[in-house]
Amino acid sequence: MAGILSSSIARKVAMALSGIFLVSFLALHFIINLTSVFSEDFFNEASHFMGTNPIVQFLLQPILVFGVIFHFVMGFVLELQNRKARGDVGYAMYKGSANSSWLSRNMIISGIVVLLFLGLHFYDFWIPEMVTKYVEGDMTGMHGDTFRYYEETVHKFAGDPIRTGLYVLSFVFLMLHLLHGFSSSFQSVGFNNKYSRGLKGFTKAFAIVVPLGFAFIAIFHYVSHL
């Protein structure tokens, strides 16, 4: 792998593909979470399916974990290499805003916030799930005589303004990350043609709607249990 990734373009393409993969995961995650606003039963069914289906659990989930780790490790590698390429002495005056957006120049900052959020998010949901399913061996998804997923999700936000606030803040940074990253990834894989303007519009809309949608879901569960 070090061989393939020894060229700057290969690293860019790997970064873009892992980013696009994470975006597609994000879309799926969003759709499932959104159902929690409309239908407790549907959300439970969907969560149970995702949580117990062997293809999801033993094929897609490891790919996802690898994808996340690959993406942020590569993000740090690129950042370090790029700082080195800038040289030891910086500009006394550098007007980045004259030629590029703050978002595009600070992917590492929005990325680090998302990474911190992922730590919290794994601690909140993923680790307890793994413990219940694979340590305690309880694959039923039940708590008493109902599915536990909806209750567990809602419980995390109900009565917890700090957690809700942290989630909302993180989603804002995710939005910033995707506002540049999603459209940038198409340029990286060499897609720049007459369709690019339309695609850019779509990526920007996605980058705003999906993270704000996630924020809405967190706020919804917080508010509806006040």
Binding site: K84, S100, S104
Partner: peptide
Amino acid sequence: FGNCTNTGA
């Protein structure tokens, strides 16, 4: 030289 991150500068 560094890796492009598509800032467009």
